[in-house]
């Protein structure tokens, strides 16, 4: 019977599960909302992933959990931090990755790797401040009453940005409202907001060192306006895995495979 390896990433907003086979082929994956019960979300996501691949539970040889709720997953063999998992997930698609930036729903991290030794050398995490996370953009989208997709579309159109000087999400919100009241062009406000997110994560990136290949993971990596703002700030276009949101879970699955061998 074929054996599989699972990675379970319980984030504060969403839970992701990835299944790979012994040849590291990605077999199946799934994303659900975490809600208030991480363990249930993990079970639900796992069931869904297995169903999609038509695989039974007992074919999973090893499972590793990661993310904010990693200790909740009682059925995992081991818990590993999302820092290590995102690093391994990034290396899977980009074997020369040296800098990884993960902007998640509620936190963000910058990771410096040694791709040859496949090791995390240093990292920085921002968990205290909503500015510099997906939450910042959500709050603004809500405030401006536009969908996230439209927000990105408009931001990409802007030729220049209106600078948001506040460091705090709450103050920035007030600043944006005030700009709208002054009839400032909304594309420029939106470009400014995306730049604000990038400015917030930039010190973390500088701290770990920005080296090629520079990879972006996490849900916010799907936001093309963020990618553009990052490229403008950093000078290097970030590389993005095909499904950036599941990078952590994928890394966990890969570590589960490695774990089996040790």
């Amino acid at each position: 019977m074929k054996k599989y390896f699972a990675g379970i990433d319980i984030g504060s907003l969403t839970t992701k599960v990835v299944l790979i086979d012994e040849k590291t082929e990605l077999v199946s994956s799934c994303v659900v909302y975490t809600g208030y019960d991480g363990l249930s979300a993990a079970k639900e996501a796992l069931e869904e992933t297995l169903k999609k691949a038509a695989i039974s539970r007992d074919q999973i040889q090893q499972a590793i959990s990661t993310g904010y709720g990693r200790h909740l997953v009682t059925f995992a063999n081991k818990a590993v931090t999302e820092i290590t998992c995102h690093a391994h997930g990034a290396l899977y698609f980009f074997p020369n990755a040296r800098t990884v930036l993960d902007i998640g729903g509620q936190d963000s991290k910058a990771i410096g790797l040694d791709p040859v030794a496949r090791r995390v050398i240093n990292f920085r995490m921002n968990d205290k401040c909503a500015a510099g996370t997906g939450r910042f953009l959500e709050v603004m989208a809500q405030r401006l009453r536009i969908g996230m997709d439209r927000m990105v579309e408009l931001a990409l159109k802007a030729k220049k940005a209106l600078e948001i000087s506040s460091v705090c999400t709450v103050f920035a919100e007030t600043e944006v409202v005030s700009m709208v009241a002054q009839n400032k062009p909304v594309e420029e406000i939106l470009k400014g907001l995306h730049q604000a997110v990038v400015n917030r994560v930039y010190p973390m990136l500088r701290d770990v060192g920005i080296k090629e290949e520079f990879v972006m993971t996490g849900g916010v990596a799907k936001n093309r306006a963020i990618l553009k703002a990052l490229e403008e700030k950093v000078g290097i276009p970030p590389k993005v895995p095909p499904d950036p949101q599941i990078t952590g879970a994928l890394g966990a699955a890969l570590l589960a495979l490695e774990n089996k061998e040790s």
Binding site: S165, S166, V167, F171, T174, E175, S178
Partner: peptide, 9 residues
Amino acid sequence: DERYYSDEQ
């Protein structure tokens, strides 16, 4: 540091 000033407030 002007980033820590809330105009409205």
